[in-house]
Computed example of a mutant assay.
Amino acid sequence: MFKIVPKQMFFTKGVGHHRNKLQSFELALRDAGIEKCNLVTISSIFPPDCKIISKAEGLKLLAPGQILFVVLARESTNEPSRLVTAAVGLAQPKDKNQYGYISEHHGFGQNARQSGDFAEDLAATMLASTLGIELDPDKAWDERKQHYVAGKDRLFVSRSVAKAAHGHKDGLWTTVLACAVMVVD
């Protein structure tokens, strides 16, 4: 049986404004650089031995019409000044042979940092629970070392990408998106 296991992944984000909601999403995809692909949303497993590459490097690997697997967070509003946010977080054991978790978060009233931090906490909590570990993200985060400490010896690294924007002043649709893009060779 043929298995599709991505070997590379990159993060991207975007924002778009338009009088039509769908077109604001299209403009956000353009801002993120992935508008030329057919997106298939997937759930939240970061494969073992998957390498995180830069957005610039990842975009060079894409072709028009390509099927592209993404973990996607998106939010829209047509209310002037309303703050919308979208974030994708990754939690990965330091052991690259284990799988990690990707989480998506979208909502209102959070800036990009708050949204990104929340997405990272979600991913770390989900990963810990699959390993049978209780994790309180507020207590497990080691600010100095920039990783999660869970259980006796397990360490998690995390990162996120987030985009926040205020609704357009003229009531145009504003769409923000953040995604983890899986590259399949």
Rank of each mutant, 00 (worst) to 15 (best):
K21G: 00
K13E: 11
K13V: 02
S24P: 03
S44A: 11
F46P: 00
D31W: 07
K36C: 00
A32D: 02
N20M: 12
V40G: 02
F46Y: 15
P47K: 07
K21D: 07
R19N: 11
C37V: 13
K60D: 14
K55P: 01
L22H: 13
L61S: 13
G33A: 12
I42F: 01
V40D: 05
P48C: 04
I52T: 13
S24D: 05
H17K: 11
G33S: 08
F25Y: 14
K36Y: 00
G14T: 05
Q23A: 00
L59T: 08
F46C: 02
H17R: 12
S43H: 10
I42A: 09
T41G: 02
T41C: 09
G14V: 09
S44I: 03
A56I: 11
T41L: 03
Q23S: 07
F25N: 08
E35L: 02
E35I: 00
G16T: 01
L62K: 11
L22V: 08
F25C: 01
G33K: 08
E57Q: 14
V15N: 01
N38Q: 14
S44L: 01
L22W: 06
S54P: 06
I34G: 03
A56Q: 14
K36S: 11
K55V: 04
L39W: 08
L62D: 09
S43K: 12
P48R: 10
S44V: 02
H18S: 14
E35G: 04
N20D: 15
R19D: 11
A63V: 09
P64W: 09
H17N: 14
E26T: 10
I34K: 05
L39N: 08
S24W: 03
K21M: 12
L22E: 15
K51W: 04
R19P: 00
S54W: 04
D31Y: 04
L62P: 06
K21H: 06
I52Y: 00
K60E: 15
P64F: 06
A32K: 04
L59Q: 14
